[in-house]
């Protein structure tokens, strides 16, 4: 009940914001006055209607995961976000090793297996990507100054990063 209502409310707010943004769409001579806005308007209206319906008639609540699982998921999200910004800066092997090992640890809770899973995956996948598939921008490792690494990490901090 509550989950559906909360999600419906978020969807409703998003739909209204979407409609508001759609009224601000710039137009020019080539596109005509109204056509670039027409379809976004339709989407916003239908979205808002379905969201209202979800609030009005919610389904039973799903089984949300226990706190420990939620914690693991949050850790996974943070780890993956760091991976996303560090992969272009530090090259493939080091970030992949750390990320794979940490993710693996979230599942098996054994340090040793997680370590070897990370090691095996980072080296194994590197060989596959680099030599079997010859992907161009997969680089083993790059030397990056601390300033550059910090620069990459700030992307994740709202209002400070780019």
């Amino acid at each position: 009940m509550a989950s559906d209502r909360i999600f419906g409310l978020i969807a409703l707010i998003t739909a209204v914001a979407y409609l508001a943004a759609a009224t601000q769409i710039q137009t020019n001579f080539f596109s005509g006055e109204f056509l670039p806005k027409l379809f976004p308007y339709l989407i916003g209206c239908f979205g808002a209607l379905s969201a209202l319906f979800m609030i009005y008639k919610p389904d039973p609540d799903p089984e949300w995961p226990a706190k420990t699982s939620l914690g693991s998921m949050a850790v996974a999200v943070v780890v993956l976000a760091f991976y996303a910004v560090l992969l272009p800066v530090l090259g493939f092997i080091i970030p992949t090793f750390l990320t794979a090992a940490l993710l693996s640890y979230q599942l098996c809770k054994e340090k040793k297996s997680a370590f070897f899973a990370g090691l095996g995956l980072s080296l194994g996948l590197f060989l596959v990507f680099k030599f079997a598939l010859q992907l161009g921008n997969v680089v083993a490792f790059k030397l990056a100054s601390p300033a550059k690494i910090w620069d990459a990490i700030t992307i994740l901090i709202p209002f400070i990063g780019h």
């Binding site: 990320t99 090992a101 693996s104 599942l107």
Partner: peptide, 14 residues
């Protein structure tokens, strides 16, 4: 799963 899952993730990212 603790090998499979990180593997799938890394392949998706790369």
């Amino acid at each position: 799963a603790w090998v499979l899952l990180p593997g799938v993730t890394m392949i998706s990212f790369v």
